[in-house]
């Protein structure tokens, strides 16, 4: 008696929902979206952000490290914001995949129950952390996008990101004000540190398990080798993540602003590539809004 999964459900007299009917497809899409686009975007995003520390694009002789970083970061952000139909790319290439991955992820995570107390094996701990980092990651990504992309200033410790002054506004967001790193900033920076670390783990470990899920790594030895590769990728991403957070948390926002203002003129024609709504935005260190009441 040959039964498809759906028929099998009918056979046992269960009402089958959308999830059961498309079980395999959804599971594999969940796995896939974690890598492409989300994982791929994570790599790009961390590379961009960490350029605040290592940046050297369009560097001029005599540029301070700060100037190199700010210029590079600004250059990258400008490029991204110059993409046509950015909002469509964001919605369909990022936000919906992330939402899909998050919603299904929570649903799948809730099918398990952690037991690391009884079985404290390394693999089991990673299993537990994968789920915890997923939960935390959703909160973090939401806060991150809502404050810095959507400008939901009513959220606590929020501030506005401005692509025209990418480095300085990011620094202000992480520092909690114009007076250097303050209490609010410590809270935000720590949250970023933890959030982004968990997401990097989530991605690296997810990449490792995905290879098993899809059947790329079958033997224990192959799983171990792929594990080393994922761990290395994780370490590199983690380094970039921490570089980014520490870099922005300690950035001199005022200096950065001065460099940013000079940026278009230093590199002629750059400003023309910016989207119109960005060029019209009034930049400045005072862009930080009052905290929500």
């Amino acid at each position: 008696m040959f039964l498809s999964p759906a028929e099998r459900c009918v056979h046992v007299g269960k009402t089958i929902g959308f999830l059961e009917r498309n079980h395999f497809l959804l599971r594999r899409l969940h796995s896939l979206t974690g890598i492409i686009p989300i994982g791929a975007f994570l790599i790009v995003h961390l590379t961009t952000n960490s350029s605040i520390v290592w940046g050297a694009i369009n560097a001029q002789k005599g540029d301070t490290p700060l100037a190199r970083g700010v210029n590079t970061f600004q250059h990258e952000v400008a490029f991204i914001h110059s993409l046509p139909f950015l909002i469509l790319i964001e919605v369909f290439g990022l936000w919906l995949p992330i939402a899909f991955h998050a919603v299904l992820g929570v649903y799948y995570a809730r099918t398990g129950s952690m037991n690391t107390a009884r079985y404290p094996y390394q693999g089991n701990r990673r299993y537990a952390l994968q789920r915890l980092s997923g939960y935390a990651g959703i909160l973090f990504i939401f806060y991150h996008v809502a404050t810095l992309r959507w400008g939901w200033t009513w959220l606590p410790y929020s501030s506005i990101f401005n692509a025209r002054n990418a480095a300085s506004t990011t620094a202000l967001a992480l520092q909690g004000g114009t007076e250097g790193l303050q209490f609010d900033g410590v809270v935000v920076s720590l949250s970023y540190m933890i959030g982004v670390s968990l997401l990097v783990f989530h991605f690296a470990n997810g990449l490792w398990t995905a290879a098993i899920t899809w059947g790329l790594t079958v033997s224990a030895a192959a799983q171990r080798r792929w594990g080393y590769i994922c761990a290395t990728l994780g370490v590199v991403l983690m380094a970039m993540a921490w570089m980014s957070v520490i870099g922005f948390a300690t950035l001199n926002a005022a200096d950065a602003t001065r460099i940013e203002i000079g940026t278009p003129s230093t590199h002629a024609g750059r400003g023309a590539e910016l989207a119109p709504e960005l060029t019209s935005t009034q930049p400045g260190p005072d862009a930080r809004t009052p905290k929500a009441e």
Binding site: L3, S4, P5, A6, R8, C9, L19, E20, H23, F24, R27, R28, T111, G112, N115, Y119, Y121, G123, N124, R126, Y127, A128, Q130, T209, I212, T213
Partner: peptide, 16 residues
Amino acid sequence: ALMGPGGVNDCGNAQN
């Protein structure tokens, strides 16, 4: 049978 609900996809790779 193993592609459907309760099949191999339900594995969480804890490897206990």
